[in-house]
Computed example of a mutant assay.
Amino acid sequence: MIKNIDSHIDELDLMKKYPKELYYKGNINLLAKIKISIVGSRKPNQYAREYTHILASKLSKAGLCIVSGGAIGVDAICHKAAGSDNTIVVAATGLDKRYPAINAKLIEDVEKKGLVLSQFKEGSSSNRYNFVLRNELVVALGDVLIVTYADLKSGSMRSVEYALKMGKKIYVLTHRIGESKATNKLLQEGKATAIYDIDDFVRKFSDVNETSIISDDFLEYCKANPSYEAVVKKFPSRVFEAELSGEIHIKNARVYLS
C-alpha cells in the first residue's frame, strides 16, 4: 500500500527544493536511523562488486541503514548486502512500478521489510530528470556519501555534486590506475577520502564496540573464488542460503561474490 509521508524530514532541508510530496511503502521507522548513502556504476568491476558488498554488509550489521537508488550494479549490491529490512530504496518512478524490472523482486522484498521512497505519484514513469531528483534525495538522506566505483561524466558524479553542495563528506574505495577514473580524480582533487580499512571505517559511524562488527567468514572465504564443491563442504548450510539471496553466484563450478 502506497502512503504519504506527512512528517518533516530534516535531512531533506539540504535539497535545493524540499519535495512537495513524498510517498512510501514499508517501514518508515528506518528514517530515524543513522543512514549511509552508497552509489556507483551500473557496471562495477569484480573488485568493486566484492568490496561494495562487504562494506554495505558490515555497515548494516553495525546498525547503520543503507540508502541507494535501486538500480542495477552498485545500488542492487548495497541493498542485498544490507538486507531488505535495513535498507532504503529511493525510486525514480511512482511506487506502483518496480524499476528496473530486473530488480523487481529485490524492490518487492524491501517494500515488505525495509523502506521504498519516491517523490513521484503513481503512474510516473522513469525519465532523465526523475533520476536527477532521485539522486539528490539519496544523497540528502545519508550522513555521508560513499562512491564505490564511477566513470567520468556518470550519474554518480552528479550525486557527488549534490554532496559537495550539501557539505557532505565523500568517501571512495581505492582503485588501480585506469579503473574507476571518477573516484580516482576525486581523490586527486582532494574532494574525497579513501577507505583503506573497512572495519576501521565502520567503527567511525557505529555506536557498537569492536567485537560487535561481525566478520563474515563465509564471504571472506568466497572472495578467493573457491570451487563450489569446497564451499559446500566447508559451509554446507550457508552456501544454499547465500545462493538464493543473491550474495553469491556460481560460474564454471566456482563461487563468486555477487
Rank of each mutant, 00 (worst) to 15 (best):
Y18L: 06
N4L: 15
D217C: 09
S212I: 12
M1E: 09
I107R: 07
E243T: 12
L173A: 03
T148A: 03
L133A: 09
S68M: 03
A81K: 01
A91Q: 06
Y228W: 10
T148L: 05
E21V: 00
S41D: 02
K153M: 09
G40N: 05
H175P: 02
L14I: 10
S7Y: 12
M15R: 04
A242W: 00
L31R: 00
A81P: 03
A104F: 11
S68W: 01
V208C: 06
L95K: 03
N27G: 09
G142V: 04
E189A: 12
D143L: 07
I214L: 15
T193I: 10
A224C: 09
G73Q: 15
L133S: 06
L31P: 02
I198C: 15
L117H: 02
L55E: 08
A150D: 04
D75K: 07
L187A: 11
P19T: 03
L173W: 04
P100E: 07
Y171K: 02
N86L: 00
N225Y: 04
A81V: 09
I36E: 13
S206K: 04
R98N: 10
I28R: 07
V67F: 02
M1K: 11
I107Y: 05
V138E: 09
S37H: 13
Y24K: 03
S68P: 05
L219D: 07
I198V: 04
K33I: 01
V202M: 12
E210L: 12
I195R: 08
G26R: 01
Q46E: 14
K168Q: 08
Y129N: 10
H53C: 14
L137M: 14
L257Q: 04
Q188W: 01
S245A: 09
V232G: 13
G246R: 04
S37R: 03
K233H: 14
Y162Q: 15
T211Q: 13
T174G: 10
K43R: 13
G123A: 08
N252E: 08
G69Q: 03
K17T: 15
L187T: 08
I38V: 05
D199Y: 06
A76G: 13
Y228R: 14
S180Q: 01
I36R: 07
Y162I: 14
A32R: 12
V74E: 00
T87K: 01
I77W: 03
L186K: 01
T174Y: 02
R158G: 07
H79S: 14
G70A: 04
V239A: 03
I198K: 06
Y162V: 15
I54H: 04
E136V: 05
I195W: 13
K223T: 06
R134H: 11
H53K: 02
A150T: 05
R238H: 13
E210F: 15
L244T: 15
F218Q: 13
P226G: 12
K61G: 10
I107Q: 09
D75V: 12
K153A: 08
M1G: 00
G69S: 05
D143K: 08
Y256M: 00
K16A: 15
Q119C: 10
E111W: 03
V231P: 02
K20Y: 09
K80V: 13
S124K: 07
L257N: 06
L141Y: 15
V231T: 11
K97W: 15
V160C: 07
S258W: 12
T93F: 12
L117N: 06
P236N: 15
V208A: 03
L64C: 03
V239W: 01
A76F: 08
D199M: 02
L244N: 11
